[in-house]
């Protein structure tokens, strides 16, 4: 019994992480129809900001050397600034392009950033120890839960509530939802396009920063492609959730996370390496049944 509970905790913790990534992707997609590959590099660069750029495998800490609050603030601001910068330099000039062009340009931005990190930090994986105390397991009702998983779940829950409050209660949040619903119309009614889009990027940067911290605490390693798999999972989450729907993105994130952990646990050992393929095949299957995703929004189909 405890075993099943343990698996469920794993599943929900991973699902929370993917839900955060999916929300970051979904927010930006909502306001400008951009599927942002560079989200992966936001996560990577946030994590790399913890260390001093050297060729060493165990580099000295940079932001990671600061007290916890400053470190968190530092990493988050690095990622937020990076997200705003990419928006300003690469995506704003393309705002009126079609979604395919935007998709391709974000692919180029991502490739650029990834190689930039490689140029600065070299390509070898590094180890970094922050928040080691969180790796210790906490015992709750006979189940041992790693502290970082509790943290992930807690942070996700907190951010979800904050995001919902922001979107429902504040003027900017309402404008953002209006923009996602019908950008043209919202603009005609006085929605400040630049500010709302920049804000969407800032929030998605914030979420990515949180993800990079959680990932680094969990794995203790830095890798050029550390952001890739979470973001690819996040993409699939937004697609099966229904593109343009934020609840859909969060739901999709939880689904792929849970599916991933369940496959990891219950697949025969020989087949476990193929887990990701299983999850992605599942994604395609869900799309076969519901091509528009689980939660269909008016934004999913182009207006005629």
């Amino acid at each position: 019994m405890a075993n099943i509970v343990q698996v469920l905790v794993d599943a929900i913790a991973l699902g929370s992480l993917y839900a955060l990534v999916a929300l970051a992707i979904g927010l930006v997609f909502g306001v400008m129809r951009l599927v942002n590959f560079a989200q992966a590099d936001y996560i990577t660069i946030g994590a790399y900001a913890l260390v001093v750029p050297t060729a060493s495998v165990t580099p000295p800490l940079l932001l990671g050397a600061l007290p916890a609050a400053l470190m968190i603030g530092g990493v988050l601001s690095v990622v937020v600034v990076l997200a705003l910068l990419t928006e300003r330099v690469a995506f704003r000039p393309l705002r009126n392009s079609n979604p395919s062009t935007l998709l391709i340009s974000s692919f180029a931005v991502s490739y650029f950033l990834q190689n930039l990190v490689m140029l600065i930090h070299t390509g070898r994986p590094k180890s970094v120890g922050i928040g080691q105390s969180l790796a210790n397991a906490v015992e709750i009702g006979g189940v041992r839960v790693p502290g970082v998983q509790l943290l992930t779940m807690g942070v996700t829950a907190g951010l979800l509530v904050a995001l919902v409050l922001f979107l429902k209660k504040t003027p900017l949040g309402i404008q953002m939802r209006a923009a996602a619903e019908n950008f043209q119309m919202a603009r005609l009614l006085g929605m400040p396009a630049n500010r709302v889009i920049a804000l969407a990027f800032a929030i998605s940067g914030l979420l990515s920063g949180v993800v990079s911290l959680l990932l680094t605490i969990q794995t203790g390693t830095l890798d050029l492609r550390m952001g890739l798999m979470p973001v690819v999972y996040g993409f699939f989450a937004t697609v099966i959730g229904g593109m343009g729907s934020l609840p859909g993105a969060a739901l999709g994130g939880f689904l792929v996370g849970v599916a991933s952990v369940l496959l990891q646990t219950y697949l025969p050992t020989d087949l476990r390496p193929f887990r990701d393929a299983g999850v992605f095949a599942l994604v395609i299957l869900i799309l076969l049944v519901r091509p528009q995703g689980l939660i269909v929004t008016s934004a999913a189909k182009e207006r005629v």
């Binding site: 129809r33 599927v35 979604p99 395919s100 993409f235 697609v239 994604v283 076969l288 091509p291």
Partner: peptide
């Protein structure tokens, strides 16, 4: 069967 963007993401899945 999917529309443009969803198809693009699914080719990534493939």
């Amino acid at each position: 069967r999917l529309t443009g963007l969803a198809a693009s993401i699914s080719t990534l899945a493939v």
